[in-house]
Nucleic acid binder design. Sequence first.
DNA 1: GCTTGCCATGTAAACGATTACACCTATAAT
DNA 2: ATTATAGGTGTAATCGTTTACATGGCAAGC
Lengths: 340, 340
Amino acid sequence: MSEKPPRIQDVARAAGVSTATVSRALSNPDLLTKPTREAVFEAVRSTGYRVNRAARNLRKQSANAILVLVPNLGNPFFSKILEGISEGFAGSDVSVLITDSNHLPEHERRLTDYFLDGRIDGMISLDGNLTTTDMTEFARENVGDRIVFACEWVQDAPMPSVRSDNYKGAQIAVQHLYELGHRRIAHVTGPADNRLTHVRREGMLAERQRLGLPQRPDWIIRGDFSLRSGREAAQRIVAMQDRPSAVFCASDEVAFGLIAGLNAAGLRVPEDISVVGFDDIDQAEHYVPALTTIRQDRIGLGRSAAALLLGQMTNAHNAPAAEVELLDVTLIARDSTAPR
Amino acid sequence: MSEKPPRIQDVARAAGVSTATVSRALSNPDLLTKPTREAVFEAVRSTGYRVNRAARNLRKQSANAILVLVPNLGNPFFSKILEGISEGFAGSDVSVLITDSNHLPEHERRLTDYFLDGRIDGMISLDGNLTTTDMTEFARENVGDRIVFACEWVQDAPMPSVRSDNYKGAQIAVQHLYELGHRRIAHVTGPADNRLTHVRREGMLAERQRLGLPQRPDWIIRGDFSLRSGREAAQRIVAMQDRPSAVFCASDEVAFGLIAGLNAAGLRVPEDISVVGFDDIDQAEHYVPALTTIRQDRIGLGRSAAALLLGQMTNAHNAPAAEVELLDVTLIARDSTAPR
DNA sequence: GCTTGCCATGTAAACGATTACACCTATAAT
DNA sequence: ATTATAGGTGTAATCGTTTACATGGCAAGC
């Protein structure tokens, strides 16, 4: 049944024109006279022609593909961002590759290789923990202007990034608790080496200070965004003789773990302790109690990153400004917070 | 700083051999004599040569890439499977493309195009709702033997698939409830057009029958795997005058929604109603109450699918048997179920 | 009527690898 | 000694596009 797929040559023959004309009809239709153009289109239709990507890529010295670097593909937090990225590239004829940067075998860790061997011509990193080796190689090979960060980022990196306004998020979380009458506010952080952790902690501290609340270092509990670390934080809090009345968690998962842990110890949320999360993942709305949290527009992060990279890739001359696109965050008040 | 990247020609010159020899050293080292081989390796190292993928792909008429078709990238359920797939291809030099089959613009919906234009040479579909048009096109273009299904599948499709033992899962869920003394067992299904829905419902019905439990059609509530549908199911159940004492949900998310909904109506889980989920997603362990559920090995699904496809792709001659690899499931008993 | 310029098209040279085929040893077989 | 064989290497064709350059025709300007 299936013959060899038609080549541009076959289309040219069918339309009675040269291969150059066919190519032009496909990529630059305005150059052609209307009858020729339509003859080509007709021939394309009748032959069922599809341009061969490998050949095009070789000739054009581009890959028509980008890579998304995900720190942990199994983490549902990233999936919505991926959805946004996928959407952002949907109409653009660019293929989206993904890879899990943590599970990359050692000998494939050289990220520049993806560029150098022509597999991709752009990259979106959701991973803010790239090594300095990575960064210097990006610079050396001049691929820095085809990389953007989304959600996370590397400090002082000369690449543009899209992120949520994490600082503000922390502020309004604390503010919300303050308005409910809470004065004794604790914080469970993210992992130590993470920029988000830092910014959220800073925003939190700044707001606590601004409102004249006690700066209790023992109420800053180290976590790592995970359910488990929330659970552990709960044990720490339960063991305190001088307990906070509210906890702002660096992620929703931490909040879930925390609430589960508090419940297990007989403390009720929000009656005994109010809890605020960060992210507004899907489950937040349906947790028991429904979680008060700071919403990040994760799809928006993905979409913007896609748009940004698409821009960088088309206007190659464009200054690779290390601009930061800050997406707004909002407080979603639900049932895990209550007046003191 | 950065010169043009070296070509195979440059390596050949540096090593004092021909391009053919360089190519062989890279792809088929055994063909060469030890000194030549090492000279080439040395030249590769000193020049920093990387083989150009577009050129290789063009010449070899393959893409060295596969596509993963995800029905909804935003759904965290799939992310772990993606992780498994990513792992499965990690050492193999195959690029993993992903696309969200629901957000695909109409004119890109022709899945065979990915094959025909040489962008991919294999596909893993997590989407069991491919159209019959898709299926006939796969057959017509002879790409059926480079496709595998994971988790979901299309009925009667001539492609291999990896799935969990959903039937057994439903059975042991019901059995577990039975052993706890429950006799009035309800079920919230998945979406109507889904194979998983069907199999899980069948397993459930069969077990209910085997145990001589009442077959109450009004205790089969239509859902769609979502939190929301679980919530709606809760309302239905609350409104019943003749309530079940336990509910087996087609997914963990449904179970979460259900529990949240029951709680909102003043019914306690597991005291008033026991609930079993399906999947064992990360949150299940940390929900309140911790969710009793049927564990699917999602990473394993991904890994097996990857291995299967890799096999199909290398042994192209291999009969494209529509074999089914069934992964075992296990009951994880937690706190959402209790004796009647 | 002849030049000039422009526009639509065609011709053919890239792009950078793989590999069929040819060739040239060196060794084994006769 | 001569031929056959095999193994290592080189030469050059090939994969299917895109695009620089060449070409030819036609309208406008003199």
